[in-house]
Design a protein around this nucleic acid. Structure first.
Length: 272
DNA sequence: CTCCTATCCTGCGAGC
DNA sequence: TGCTCGCAGGATAGGA
């Protein structure tokens, strides 16, 4: 479900819900079995603490209290929503009810259970975070850094763009969309990418992620931010999930093939 | 090391 | 209708 634009919109919606920095009154863990078991004890230590801020690193959300930080990853189907305490109920696949002072509840729901929820008080030491590549919308993501990261790799560039050690936040949708906009075919071997074309890819990744954030992300079936808002970037897809349809630029037929185990979409005429 | 595949899990749509 | 099959926005373990 969520790539960087969706996670960023969840972050913003959560932060807007927490402007009053409410205290966590209590946790209710309805089911602990996410990808790893939810570490109940270490999380309960944060009861009574104020939620002061929500940050994002890569596709991870970092919920800061004054005494420690919670790390949330949405996997494929994770979502956060906010409900009034008076009407909160246990829906299918709810894992966590995080009660806040003032009568609201943050609810984490995750049907496929690929998500993560744990403590993370030291980002530099966290195995989840310590090997991540640059943020794509930061000044650290440049033609030079991308080219350097790719020059020793032989995998298709589309697979490399999804490697969170190369650049973070790009998933299966935006990898295809960025390469279309850059005019680079997804099967191009990473080390074959020239510095000049790396610059094109950097620009396209930035552009597509920025536009997707502004559009509220992409809602394929079930993505919503914490306010329940859907995204609209799916209407601006140029190749993703358009196999067999005409290229919006050249009318050629959009192709689909699996690379790195993930469906990949491109236009063979526009992308070289 | 790098690369590739299978795997975790539920839900949904296509095809019969 | 109802069933089966394949596939889905991510990340990682393990084998070649």
């Amino acid at each position: 479900m969520p790539e960087l634009p969706e996670v960023e919109n969840v972050r913003r919606s959560l932060e807007s819900l927490l402007v009053d920095t409410p205290r966590i009154t209590r946790f209710v863990f309805l089911r602990r079995d996410l990808r790893d078991a939810i570490p109940v004890q270490s999380l309960r230590q944060l009861e009574g603490q104020r939620l002061v801020r929500v940050r994002r690193r890569a596709k991870y959300l970092l919920l800061d209290t004054e005494a420690g930080t919670m790390l949330s990853h949405l996997g494929m189907t994770g979502s956060w929503r906010c409900e009034p305490e008076a009407s909160v109920r246990d829906r299918a696949h709810d894992h966590i009810h995080l009660f806040l002072e003032g009568g609201r509840v943050l609810v984490y729901n995750d049907p496929r259970r690929f998500g993560i929820f744990e403590r993370c008080d030291n980002e530099a030491l966290s195995p989840r975070l310590c090997d991540l590549g640059p943020e794509p919308l930061s000044s650290e993501f440049t033609a030079e850094t991308l080219w350097l990261a790719l020059r020793t790799k032989c995998v298709p560039i589309k697979v490399a763009l999804m490697d969170q050690r190369v650049v973070v936040g790009v998933g299966n949708i935006y990898a295809s969309e960025a390469l279309f906009r850059a005019g680079v075919k997804p099967q191009l071997r990473s080390h074959q990418l020239s510095l000049a074309r790396a610059g094109q890819v950097v620009g396209s990744v930035r552009e597509v992620l920025s536009q997707a954030i502004a559009a509220g992300g992409s809602t394929i079936s079930d993505y919503r931010d914490a306010d329940g808002r859907v995204g609209s970037f799916q209407s601006l897809f140029r190749v993703y999930d358009r196999a067999g349809e005409p290229c919006l630029t050249c009318q050629g037929k959009i192709r689909q093939k699996v690379y790195g185990g993930r469906s990949t979409f491109w236009c063979a005429r526009c992308q070289r």
